[in-house]
Design a protein around this nucleic acid. Structure first.
Length: 909
DNA sequence: GATCCGACACTAT
DNA sequence: ATAGTGTCGGATC
């Protein structure tokens, strides 16, 4: 539910005058399940039996009363204090006053009953939003954006032929006027009042009003024509490019007029937070993200994760060091006025705005310190205020023109707010907001097609920072449109190596790296974690690190917290790059949500680990001459859409019951899921001859038809070609005796990869890898901790699981010379592990558990763990005679062995 | 509501 | 033509 809706709904409840069901109505506005409320009404889960009280476990202790409110509250509070698990809120009311208490934060709410709608955010913890976070992100923005969304919809509907540019410009300008009249840029309520007074109720002359007003705002007061209507004289000169272009004529109605006036009267524009206002407005303008208003709750903390390590910590340290030294302070003061900042994917400008405000705050802090020094000297010298940080230092590139406009607007708002702050905190320091300054260089264009050096020319020693959160569009062009692919080509085509498997964001890293190369400029972008995992690592980072570039800091992957449905499971990291400005303190930050700790390291590899820079390159056969591993057999039969070549156990039983003679055509079929839970499906495993027999039986015939249809209708040529053999899997590999199997999906919580053996009765799906009829000691290697550590680094990862890969993980795995005796020893221990699995019963899921999981870790079977540790001892010693201290040491040696092996192999070829 | 993993398109070879 | 990987979204708890 949108935020203004919560407000509106509570308003309705409060306005009802009949409060019999008050608390149930109230709860239903928040994210409390309907069923819970229904039960509560019936008294089923009401843990209090006192009349007028409702106690919902963990959520609420409510009391309505006609007695003394404070006394009732004290009574309830005493009861709650006795409880082991406390409800989040205490809520006491006599329908005239409300007393509420948040047991977690100790916040109290004491308001007249009818003010409840405006204070809806007090109870947002029920929706999983902490009030502190909510306050930080300022609800005024959300309400503003939602009111604006309504206005936008109406205007768009009334003006089907208006250009997008004209509409957007109108909106931005109205927004500016509303903000201006609430924040002393204009006289209080000047715009809204004039609109109300001077235009007709039906909206017919609003366009003339707007057009006249906007054109005047661009003209200096002295230059305005003598016949300028008197009501316009109160409006100051604004400039700043905002009112330069003429207003494009629009049709207004009674409704849109009312909505503008509402926006002016109902909203507190002085509380607008420009950090997120832009994102909100952008969401308004783009239909598909409308439902995601509020998705930017965490953007400011995340922006800080980028800008603090990139430059802000450094500036703040410098400030601390300069305290008490006027000259040093002055030096820093001058320095911050010269730094240039560019966000080459600035969206609605969040990064720029947050940075601008931080810099202006630093400017104020320096002035304070300088004033302190002057006061102590007692020389009576007053300081002349000279501005240091200006909007001219801020550059942005954004493809969406509305976003560009909102960026400029938000920068002005930020500037005005900081001007006010300056005036409040420093005597005699005044920066006028009007006329508006040129709001940085916000360029509307495609960042991957522009020459960044042209936008922001820089010399070797200039202090320049690039940052931002460029778009991710997945690798292999799954989400990339044709234009995106062409952009990528433009960036990468003249560089050696592949680029088609790279995520769209790689373009920004590449251009950014080129921009900072051999200069002191530095950069940091938020990125999808996939560019530092698996396949993409080599393709991207060998090109970047081939320049004079190194990774100066990074944030380990963390989940991007937003409510946007599409982005729900994005895992991101943050990567900082430097060139000449050598980072002598490289840092790896980890997201511990409370204290953001970091580790100082000597080098950050492109896998974002503390190791030397080595690329693990995909390769078709084992660098250590291990027997060939194959991907399991892919069905490509349409999956669950319609029955195809795969049969559940029930379907299989039914089929062979009806047609016993077909039993010989089935094999057991196992993917990761079946393997891990000790079950299987069945698949048809036949040739052309059997196909001709089976297609006479309707059950089978239908399945062949389904497979044919699926393959025929695929957008992939390869799949189309398979349509002629609808009885066959895409792949048809098979073991002669047995298969060493490795599941493709491996959750991070496990200590080992639960590889194993299957007999030749089993076909393994493409969710498994297999070494057909391979030697058992190889299974021993795969079961080792060493191998797991290698896979963790070399293979791709998705959310919380590693995806095993033969070319990236198995074939690259370095193996030292193993004597026959050692191999025998390993085989013995493997058999022991397999025996224990049999003896201990339970599925592999049960046996291996998830001891390393963050939530609900499940232990590994102790006997099995012991057997694995015995195996580790033997395998570890084969690599290093006295074993390893930890996994980090294991990985360091493996990487070392890997690079030596690759070099050897290259030199012998 | 988070996690797992089946499924397969797209790319490299 | 063949084969492998990352990603999406459905399934499942």
């Amino acid at each position: 539910m949108a935020i203004t809706e919560i407000e509106d709904q509570i308003f309705k409840i409060v306005d009802k005058k009949n409060y019999d069901n008050f608390i149930y109505d109230f709860l239903s506005v928040y994210d409390i399940p309907k069923a819970t409320i229904t039960k509560l009404k019936k008294g089923i889960n009401n843990l209090s039996d006192v009349a007028g009280e409702v106690y919902l476990k963990n959520k609420l202790y409510y009391k309505q009363t006609d007695k003394d409110l404070m006394q009732s509250f004290t009574d309830v509070k005493a009861k709650v204090d006795e409880l082991g698990t406390k409800p989040r809120y205490i809520f006491v009311t006599n329908f005239k006053e409300v007393l509420a208490y948040d047991t977690k934060t100790d916040d109290t709410l004491s308001i007249p009953f009818e003010r409840l709608p405006q204070k809806f955010e007090f109870f947002l913890a029920w929706n999983g939003i902490e009030k502190a976070d909510f306050d930080k992100e300022n609800p005024a923005d959300i309400r503003a954006a939602e009111r604006f969304a309504k206005l936008y919809d109406v205007i768009v509907k009334d003006n089907p032929h208006a250009t997008r540019k004209g509409l957007n410009l109108f909106l931005i300008r109205v927004l500016f006027c509303l903000f201006a009249e609430d924040t002393d840029i204009f006289e209080k309520n000047l715009f809204t009042n004039k609109l109300k007074e001077l235009t007709q109720l039906d909206g017919s002359d609003v366009d003339t009003f707007i057009s006249t007003l906007f054109s005047v705002l661009d003209v200096k007061v002295d230059n305005r024509p003598a016949d300028t209507p008197s009501w316009l004289a109160d409006f100051p000169y604004v400039d700043g490019d905002l009112f330069k272009d003429p207003h494009e004529s629009l049709k207004f109605t009674a409704k849109s007029r009312k909505l503008i006036i509402d926006a002016g009267e109902k909203l507190e524009w002085d509380q607008i937070n420009p950090d997120i206002l832009g994102s909100m407005l952008q969401a308004v303008a783009s239909e598909d993200s409308r439902s995601h208003l509020g998705m930017h709750y965490t953007s400011v903390p995340n922006i800080m994760k980028v800008i603090k390590p990139l430059f802000l910590d450094d500036l703040r340290n410098e400030f601390e060091k300069s305290k008490g030294n006027y000259k040093k302070l002055q030096h820093l003061y001058d320095r911050i006025g010269k730094i240039k900042f560019m966000d080459p994917a600035c969206g609605s400008g969040n990064f720029l705005i947050v940075t601008y405000k931080q810099l202006r705050q630093l400017e104020i802090d320096i002035l304070k310190e300088q004033n302190k020094i002057l006061a102590e000297e007692g020389s009576g010298k007053a300081m002349m205020y000279l501005p240091s940080v200006t909007l001219n230092q801020f550059y942005g590139i954004e493809i969406d023109d509305f976003a560009c406009d909102t960026t400029r607007l938000s920068l002005w708002i930020a500037e005005h707010q900081m001007n006010i702050k300056l005036r409040e905190e420093i005597n005699n320091a005044v920066r006028p907001t009007l006329p508006l300054q040129h709001a940085g260089a916000i360029i509307c264009g495609n960042a991957l097609r522009l020459d960044w050096e042209k936008l922001l020319p820089h010399k070797k020693d200039d202090e320049v920072y690039l940052f931002g959160n460029p778009p991710y569009l997945g690798s292999h062009g799954a989400k990339q449109k044709k234009t995106h692919k062409e952009d990528m080509k433009a960036v990468f085509a003249n560089l050696n190596g592949n680029y088609k498997g790279l995520d769209y964001i790689s373009g920004w890293f590449m251009l950014g790296a080129k921009y900072i190369n051999n200069t002191k400029a530095t950069l940091a972008f938020v990125a999808t974690s996939s560019i530092t995992q698996g396949q993409q690592v080599f393709d991207l980072w060998n090109k970047i690190l081939d320049l004079n570039i190194e990774i100066s800091f990074c944030w380990e992957p963390f989940t991007w917290n937003n409510n946007a449905k599409n982005n729900a499971k994005v895992t991101v990291n943050i990567i900082g790059l430097t060139s000449l400005k050598k980072a002598n303190n490289k840092r790896i930050y980890t997201d511990n949500s409370f204290n953001n700790t970091f580790e100082k390291v000597d080098n950050i590899s492109p896998y974002l680990t503390n190791h030397s820079t080595i690329f693990i390159k995909s390769i078709g056969s084992s660098i250590s001459n291990l027997p060939e591993m194959d991907m399991g057999d892919m069905a490509n039969d349409g999956g669950n859409k319609a029955p195809g070549l795969l049969f559940t156990i029930e379907e299989y039983k039914r089929a062979i019951e009806q047609y016993p003679e077909t039993k010989q055509y089935f094999k057991k079929h196992v993917g990761t899921k079946e393997y891990m839970s000790s079950t299987c499906r069945y698949c048809l495993w036949i040739g052309e001859k059997e196909y001709n027999l089976l297609k006479k039986i309707p059950v089978f015939k239908n399945r062949f038809i389904n497979v044919y249809k699926h393959r025929q209708s695929s957008s992939d040529k390869g799949t189309n070609n398979l349509a002629t053999t609808p009885f066959k899997f895409r792949d048809t590999k098979i073991a002669r005796e047995y298969t060493i199997v490795v599941p493709k999906v491996n959750t991070v919580g496990r200590l080992y990869i639960p590889a194993g053996l299957l007999t030749k009765d089993y076909i393994i799906s493409d969710l498994m890898f297999g070494i057909y009829d391979g030697p058992i000691w190889v299974l021993g290697l795969i079961l080792s901790r060493l191998h797991y550590v290698w896979i963790k680094t070399s293979c791709g990862k998705e959310g919380k699981s590693y995806r095993y890969s033969k070319n990236l993980g198995y074939n690259t795995f370095p193996v030292p010379h193993l004597s026959n005796r050692r191999k025998k020893e390993i085989e013995g221990l493997v058999l022991k592990i397999l025996d224990i699995r049999d003896e201990e019963k339970g599925t592999l899921n049960d046996l291996y558990g998830s001891p390393l999981a963050e939530k609900n870790p499940k232990p590994m079977n102790p006997r099995l763990l012991k057997a694995h540790q015995e195996l580790d001892q033997v395998v570890d010693r084969a690599y290093k005679p006295n074993g390893f201290r930890d996994d980090n040491e294991r990985l360091a040696l493996l990487l070392d062995m890997y690079s030596k092996k690759v070099n050897e192999n290259e030199s012998t070829n």
